[in-house]
Computed example of a mutant assay.
Amino acid sequence: MTKIIDLIIQEKVYKSKKSRLSILNDFKLEVNSGERIAIVGKSGVGKTTLLNILGLIDRNYNGSYTLFGSKTNDLNLSQLAEWRNQKIGFVLQESALINSLTIEENIKLPLLYAKSGENCKLKDFESIINAIGIESILKKKPLECSGGEKSRAVFARAVIMKPQLILCDEPTASLDGDNKERIITLLFKMNQEFNTTIITVTHDLEVANRHEKIIHLERRM
């Protein structure tokens, strides 16, 4: 197996005028290509912060991070943006959809940024849409959709580029049983077919137990 993540965090600090919060103290994570890892823990221990660090969104911490064999501190802003678009897929709690675009346009947005829209295979797009059952909302705007529909659209956008790493923050929290199963099935299918590495933050123990490894985050006093 190839190690794609080697992360060491001495400390992540949030400061305000009245307080100082330190989390993820002396945290280490190594992940091999194709692994499925669930991250669980109480609110406030740093689960979402960890995903932001893994996804190159948050770089303000004490530590070191090697991703895909490269030290992330050596990447310039252009490289960071390219990796976030093409190599990393984000399934976020908040929809982060653009309200002025249709659901279809939102899903295909990464292809536009990658300048590869013309090369997009229609069958790939359609297979994702069909797998998670959102054909009927493609022409709608996000404000016309339910929370569950928007969550599935965000998932489709995250996987459209077939990234090497998918980071999920409570991907099934707003979904019913059937749609939760659709998301998990497609996620693990990508893992099997493309050796995609999956890291999922979840409070759902049933979802966590379907991963190969579970990491429990705790606050260190």
Results as ranks from 00 to 15, higher is better:
G177P: 03
L101R: 04
I132P: 11
F125H: 07
R59Y: 11
S16D: 14
I9Q: 02
S116V: 10
K139W: 00
I183H: 04
Q79C: 07
E181Q: 05
S22W: 08
E35P: 06
A131F: 02
V40L: 03
V207T: 09
S95C: 05
M1D: 11
Y61H: 08
R36K: 14
Q86M: 10
F155Y: 04
S33M: 10
T196W: 01
A156G: 05
A156D: 07
L67H: 03
S70V: 13
R220E: 15
N179Q: 01
E94S: 13
T72Y: 00
L80A: 07
K71Q: 06
A173C: 10
N52W: 07
N76K: 04
F194L: 02
I4Q: 15
R157W: 01
S174D: 14
F188T: 01
Y61S: 07
K162T: 06
I184G: 04
L165A: 12
L143Q: 15
E170F: 12
E212Q: 11
V207H: 03
T102L: 00
A173I: 09
E94A: 10
E218A: 11
L50G: 15
K42E: 12
E30G: 10
A114Q: 04
K108W: 09
E118Q: 11
K71A: 02
K71Y: 03
N195M: 06
Y113P: 04
L29P: 14
S136Q: 12
F155V: 01
L80Q: 10
I166M: 12
S70L: 06
F155Q: 01
L138G: 06
N195R: 05
I39R: 09
E170A: 08
R182I: 03
Y65R: 01
E212C: 04
N76L: 04
S100E: 09
N99P: 15
N32H: 05
N76T: 04
I5L: 07
A131K: 12
I184A: 05
A131H: 06
A38E: 12
L29K: 08
K189G: 05
Q86W: 02
K189L: 02
T172P: 03
I184H: 04
M1I: 10
G44P: 11
N52P: 08
A158H: 06
I160R: 00
K213D: 02
F194C: 03
K3N: 12
Q86H: 11
Q79F: 08
S78R: 14
G63A: 03
K150Y: 01
L101G: 07
N130G: 15
V159R: 00
I132L: 01
Y14S: 07
G44R: 07
S146P: 04
R36S: 15
S95A: 11
Q86F: 05
S22V: 15
S19W: 08
I4V: 15
T197A: 11
I39C: 13
A114W: 02
N106R: 00
I128K: 05
E35Q: 13
I183E: 05
N130E: 15
I160H: 01
L56D: 08
E104L: 01
V45F: 06
